[in-house]
């Protein structure tokens, strides 16, 4: 028996990010933007926070107990949006959502996060991949 089926979802890159997530640290409480998002199917909670300087993201970080997919996804997302402005972030959120739904998208703009396209073959796990992105989306829409 081999577990090669698993490799479709748990790609090397995803597991590396999950084991050593970037921008993973507890909330300080002083961040300009902060949101807590909840995944009701599994009970996972994610905290996402950042500051904006001249309409550009600085100091983004996330925290919470999550599965490999949600951690890797949040990690890749935080890498991607550092230095981006509001419009650029919203575009990235849109591209990622499309990719997770299996729709045509500009995957190149998503950098490392494009490896998460494999999640479309695992419908029960799409919410894990999109959790951080929904958090960012909500934060951007609310604070507009």
């Amino acid at each position: 028996m081999s577990l090669h089926n698993l490799d479709n979802l748990y790609r090397q890159t995803i597991m590396a990010y999950a084991q050593h997530p970037h921008h993973y640290k507890p909330m300080l409480g002083t961040e300009g933007y902060h949101i807590q998002k909840y995944n009701p199917t599994c009970g996972d909670v994610i905290d996402l926070a950042f500051n904006m300087v001249d309409d550009r993201v600085t100091d983004i970080h996330f925290y919470g107990d999550g599965c490999a997919i949600s951690k890797a996804s949040a990690s890749m997302m935080t890498d991607l949006v550092v230095g981006k402005n509001r419009d650029q972030m919203m575009q990235l959120v849109d591209q990622f959502s499309k990719m997770a739904r299996g729709e045509a998208s500009d995957v190149k703009s998503l950098g490392e996060a494009q490896v998460l396209a494999g999640v479309t073959k695992f419908p029960t796990r799409i919410k894990c991949a999109t959790l951080a992105w929904h958090a960012l989306d909500e934060l951007l829409s609310v604070e507009k």
């Binding site: 599994c42 999550g66 490999a68 894990c128």
Partner: peptide, 20 residues
């Protein structure tokens, strides 16, 4: 994580619950 474990088991035909 419980969800990763459940997905892995599912890939081997073993159906279990994970979550709250």
């Amino acid at each position: 994580h419980a969800h990763d474990l459940a997905t892995a088991l599912d890939q081997e035909g073993i159906e279990v619950r994970a979550g709250h």
